[in-house]
Amino acid sequence: MLELRLVQGSLLKKVLESIKDLVNDANFDFSSSGFSLQSMDSSHVALVALLLKSEGFEHYRCDRNTSMGMNLGNMSKMLKCAGNDDIITIKGDDGSDTVTFMFESPTQDKIADFEMKLMDIDSEHLGIPEAEYHAIVKMPSAEFARICKDLASIGDTVVISVTKEGVKFSTRGDIGTANIVLRQNTTVDKPEDATVIEMNEPVSMTFALRYMNSFTKATPLSNTVTISMSPDLPVVVEYKIAEMGYVRFYLAPKMEE
C-alpha cells in the first residue's frame, strides 16, 4: 500500500516538467523515507537524480519498498490536468500495474482521479560516488537560465571557467563569440540573489548547451542553482526543492580531440 499526499501539488507538476524532456521512462523508487528517481537520457550523456523526502508530504505511507516504472510524458499529461493549487495524492497497491493520481481542489469541491498504466523498465542502477569538487558556484537560477539561453543563440557549447575573479561562461559560433562573467556578489538584499563562488582550484570545462538549457526547465523549482565542477567528472547542476529534496542533473563534459 502506497499513499502520498502532497498539499503543494504544483511542486510535482514542476518536477515533471523539469525532467520529462530529458528522460522518457523511469522507475520511481518508493521507500518509507521518500521517493527517488535516477535515469540517464537515451544518449547516456546526462543523468537526472530526483529525491523527494517523506517529510515534505502531508501524509506519506509506504508499507514496503516498491519501484514503479512510469512513462514521464504520460505522467506529465496526467499531472497537467491538476490545477496549480490542487492537492495531489499518489496511490498504489502492491502488485498492481497502475498508479492513481488524485487531484483535490483547495476548497474540496472538485476531486479527480487519474489512473495511469505502469510499465516494466530495465534500468541500470548507477551508483553516483560522492566527489570533492574544485569549484562550486551558487547563483540565481533565473540568471543561469538566461545565460544558457543567450549563449545558445551564438554557439552550441559553453565553456564554464571558475577562477578567483569569478565564473565565466563563454561560447563561440559562426557569427562570433560571447563571454559572460559573474563575480562573487554577496552584498544583495535577498540571499537568493547572491552569487557565491567556492573555489579550491581553478577549473574550466566544456559542455553542450542543449543539455544545459534542458536542465534550466527546473528553474521554477528553486530560486538558486548550484553548479559543481571538477576536471574529469560530470558537472552537477542542482536545484534544491525547499525542505523536500532536490533535482540534480549530471552532465558529461566535452573534451578536445
Binding site: H44, P129, T157, L233, P234
Partner: peptide, 14 residues
Amino acid sequence: LERQLILLSYFQGC
C-alpha cells in the same frame, strides 16, 4: 574538434 564523453565511463562499476 570536441568529443562528447558519456556518463557510463564515470559511473560504471560503482
